[in-house]
Simulated scan of single mutants.
Amino acid sequence: MSVTRSVIISQHGAPSVMTLETRDLPAPGPGEVQIRHTAIGFNFVDIYQRSGVYPLALPSSLGFEAAGVVVEAGPGVDGFKPGDRVAYVNAGLGAYADRRNAPADKLVPLPDTVSDEAAATLLFKGLTAQFLLRKTHAVAPGDLLLVHSAAGGVGQILTRWATALGATVIGTTSSPHKKEAALAAGAKAVIDLNDPAWPEAFLQATGGRKARVVYDAVGKDTLIRSLDCAAPFGLVVSYGGASGPAPAIDPDLLNKKGGLFLTRASIFAHNADTASLRANAADLFDAIAKGHVGVDIGRRFPLDQIAAAHEAAEARAVIGAILITP
């Protein structure tokens, strides 16, 4: 039996509700492996779960993305052995820990071309970009894309990868000081969402051309007006709700706006089975190796400073990814 430090919440609330507890960790069961974490990813959904926006059954652990090394394989596990480098994004809550047991079929092997830190900060966000660019719409050279929150974690990856595929990206940000990050990621122009006339600013930036695809992670504050930025028969993809849940839309409005297509997409549906997860991850890792996707770590926080990491994220004080170190 091993020992692990794990972040636990017994109630929803502010960052202070998180406690770091030392617990016994049993040997991995059938179909499981035990992983020693080397890098732990942070995602804004962690805040939603901690605060109760997405309620959890309490007490609960937190975190669902990490990279590390296999230390023990349980009965019936094929394909993984001690010493193998692995990462995961949907193996159940518990990534905020020194080590944990996880289902082997939820793991992806890491190639030598991808570091542990890159995997822990890019797997969730990168797989989100992967299904948006490859599955929801197969981005092609010449496509004009509008990417909301282009300076955010997913937004920067989307912008870099789409640009590498030959598309032109116009980005938006809600903070003027983040404009340079979106431009550095490859956006041709960046629109300020604080300007009530941002759809008009988008059209001005494109010479009146509308987008083949609008990627909207903002939700409540932007989705209706995002429809005005899509070309006839274009696609509007809602994949997040940073400003709150997206509003309901009358299907007839899509007809009036140009016969538009609207979808609500999720990383989990696209990676629900092991074969799809590993194939999609391999596509992402190939993009990393080619330099189409890069990691931009804004700050690192030790696991025992997890509350400070959440506070910094809620204050929007970090540009780039937050990484938790065990």
Rank of each mutant, 00 (worst) to 15 (best):
Pro232Cys: 09
Leu123Thr: 05
Gly241Lys: 00
Ala164His: 11
Asp195Lys: 00
Val70Ser: 02
Ala282Tyr: 02
Gly52Gln: 06
Ala246Ser: 15
Asp24Asn: 13
Ser175Thr: 15
Leu144Ala: 03
Leu122Val: 03
Ala246His: 05
Pro245Glu: 11
Leu284Asp: 03
Glu32Leu: 14
Asp216Pro: 04
Leu303Trp: 07
Gly79Lys: 10
Ala201Ser: 09
Lys178Cys: 03
Gly320Phe: 04
Gly76Arg: 05
Ala140Gly: 12
Ser238Leu: 07
Gly76Ile: 13
Gly207Leu: 08
Thr325Gln: 05
Gln130Ile: 04
Val139Cys: 06
Val33Ile: 14
Lys179His: 14
Ala265Pro: 00
Arg134Gln: 14
Thr222His: 08
His148Met: 01
Thr222Asp: 08
Phe131Asp: 05
Asp221Arg: 02
Asn90Glu: 11
Val293Thr: 08
Ser16Val: 09
Gly41Pro: 08
Phe44Lys: 07
Val214Ile: 09
Gln305His: 09
Ala67Leu: 10
Ser60Ala: 15
Met1Asp: 09
Pro176Asn: 11
Ile40Gln: 04
Gly79Tyr: 08
Ala269Gln: 12
Ala185Ser: 08
Phe124Asn: 12
Ala102Ile: 01
Ala265Val: 11
Phe42Thr: 11
Leu133Ile: 06
Arg225Phe: 11
Arg209Gly: 02
Val69Gln: 11
Gly298Asp: 09
Phe131Gly: 00
Glu314Ser: 12
Lys188Met: 04
Ala308Ser: 09
Gly244Ser: 06
Asn255Ala: 12
Ala14Pro: 03
His148Cys: 05
Ala287Pro: 13
Gly207Ile: 10
Ala197Trp: 04
Ala309Thr: 10
Lys135Arg: 14
Pro75Lys: 07
Pro28Gly: 12
Pro15Ser: 04
Arg99Cys: 12
Ala182Phe: 00
Ile319Thr: 15
Pro196Ala: 09
Phe80Met: 05
Pro28Thr: 11
Leu133Pro: 13
Asp273Thr: 05
Asp286Met: 04
Glu117Thr: 10
Asn255Ser: 13
Leu158Val: 10
Glu65Ala: 13
Thr19Leu: 03
Leu58Asp: 08
Leu284Gln: 02
Ala272Arg: 13
Thr274Arg: 01
Leu132Phe: 08
Val7Cys: 05
Pro109Asn: 04
Leu93Asn: 07
Leu144Pro: 03
Thr274Gln: 13
Ala217His: 06
Ser266Arg: 09
Ala181Ile: 07
Ile319Ser: 15
Val154Phe: 00
Gly13Phe: 06
Phe124Leu: 15
Phe202Val: 11
Val147Phe: 05
Leu260His: 02
Ala211Ile: 06
Lys179Thr: 15
Arg134Asp: 15
Ser276Leu: 08
Lys178Arg: 14
Gln11Ser: 14
Phe285Thr: 02
His148Leu: 11
Ser276Tyr: 01
Thr136Ser: 12
Glu21Arg: 15
Ala211Met: 02
Pro30Thr: 15
Ser175Leu: 14
Val108Pro: 03
Gln156Lys: 14
Ala281Gly: 08
Leu262Asn: 05
Asp112Lys: 09
Asp250His: 06
